Amino acid sequence: MSVVVPPFDDPAVEAVFNACPAAVKKRMLALRAMVFEVAATTPGVGELQETLKWGEPAYLTAHSKSGSTIRMAPGKAGSTQYALYFNCQTTLVDTFRTLFPTEFTYEGNRSIVFDTTGKVPAQSLKFCIAMALTYHRNKAEARA
């Protein structure tokens, strides 16, 4: 299934991507496409809302309320790093660390950090994104 990545609705979000160094921008755009692809192919997630939170591109399941917000951001100025951020009040990053102990570099309980010089393990990352986008729904189902 081929998913069409939507154009930017918010010029402020697009500006954040455009302000990144070229290599980081390319990788972050690929992450953005992956987030939209996973949302479109994961049952119950529905349409994503793309906005800025803390000045960073953020992806919310505003309609379905099925998941936890995912943010992305470049590393510090001059860095070749970029990261996906997850709500630190969830168990998401701890779960990712248990499932994928060597596939990713983690920062505390809030992010997966990437470098433009490295390879992104796409299938593992898609699984992590799907877990985030269904976090609230899965938590509710586990309580039921």
Rank of each mutant, 00 (worst) to 15 (best):
residue 110 R to E: 10
residue 61 T to D: 10
residue 5 V to Q: 14
residue 120 V to M: 06
residue 132 A to L: 01
residue 134 T to H: 00
residue 48 L to R: 12
residue 122 A to M: 04
residue 17 F to D: 14
residue 4 V to D: 15
residue 51 T to R: 11
residue 43 P to T: 06
residue 29 L to M: 15
residue 49 Q to M: 14
residue 19 A to S: 15
residue 81 Q to R: 12
residue 122 A to C: 01
residue 114 F to N: 06
residue 61 T to R: 02
residue 20 C to G: 03
residue 118 G to Q: 15
residue 36 F to N: 13
residue 76 K to N: 04
residue 74 P to T: 10
residue 48 L to W: 02
residue 69 T to M: 09
residue 12 A to S: 15
residue 60 L to S: 05
residue 107 E to W: 06
residue 104 F to L: 11
residue 140 A to M: 10
residue 140 A to L: 10
residue 24 V to T: 04
residue 117 T to N: 07
residue 5 V to D: 12
residue 75 G to Y: 09
residue 135 Y to H: 09
residue 29 L to I: 11
residue 49 Q to A: 15
residue 87 N to L: 08
residue 110 R to S: 15
residue 141 E to V: 06
residue 129 I to A: 01
residue 14 E to N: 14
residue 135 Y to A: 00
residue 99 L to P: 00
residue 109 N to W: 01
residue 102 T to M: 07
residue 18 N to K: 15
residue 42 T to L: 00
residue 75 G to V: 04
residue 12 A to K: 15
residue 77 A to D: 08
residue 49 Q to D: 14
residue 32 R to N: 08
residue 6 P to G: 09
residue 134 T to C: 09
residue 53 K to G: 02
residue 142 A to L: 05
residue 119 K to L: 08
residue 141 E to T: 05
residue 119 K to P: 00
residue 119 K to G: 02
residue 134 T to L: 02
residue 106 Y to L: 08
residue 16 V to T: 07
residue 37 E to H: 10
residue 115 D to W: 08
residue 68 S to N: 07
residue 83 A to T: 14
residue 72 M to W: 11
residue 41 T to N: 02
residue 70 I to A: 06
residue 3 V to D: 12
residue 50 E to Y: 12
residue 118 G to S: 14
residue 134 T to V: 04
residue 76 K to T: 07
residue 37 E to V: 04
residue 49 Q to V: 13
residue 131 M to V: 00
residue 92 L to K: 02
residue 103 E to R: 11
residue 104 F to W: 05
residue 30 A to L: 13
residue 73 A to I: 07
residue 39 A to I: 08
residue 37 E to K: 11
residue 73 A to Y: 15
residue 31 L to F: 06
residue 138 N to Y: 03
residue 86 F to T: 04
residue 131 M to D: 03
residue 42 T to Y: 00
residue 119 K to I: 05
residue 7 P to W: 03
residue 8 F to P: 04
residue 76 K to E: 08
residue 113 V to W: 14
residue 133 L to G: 00
residue 135 Y to E: 05
residue 70 I to Y: 06
residue 127 F to W: 07
residue 71 R to F: 11
residue 43 P to L: 00
residue 119 K to M: 08
residue 128 C to H: 09
residue 29 L to A: 14
residue 91 T to G: 11
residue 102 T to Q: 13
residue 69 T to Y: 07
residue 12 A to L: 15
residue 135 Y to S: 00
residue 107 E to D: 13
residue 110 R to Y: 10
residue 91 T to Y: 03
residue 78 G to Y: 10
residue 62 A to V: 11
residue 70 I to G: 03
residue 100 F to A: 04
residue 79 S to L: 01
residue 9 D to K: 13
residue 9 D to T: 14
residue 45 V to L: 00
residue 132 A to K: 00
residue 130 A to T: 01
residue 144 A to W: 03
residue 16 V to I: 12
residue 110 R to F: 08
residue 138 N to K: 13
residue 18 N to G: 12
residue 97 R to T: 07
residue 26 K to N: 14
residue 59 Y to D: 01
residue 123 Q to L: 03
residue 2 S to V: 15
residue 142 A to N: 09
residue 39 A to H: 09
residue 93 V to N: 02
residue 61 T to I: 08
residue 44 G to T: 05
residue 88 C to V: 13
residue 51 T to H: 06
residue 3 V to W: 03
residue 83 A to L: 15
residue 13 V to W: 13
residue 71 R to I: 05
residue 93 V to P: 03
residue 62 A to C: 07
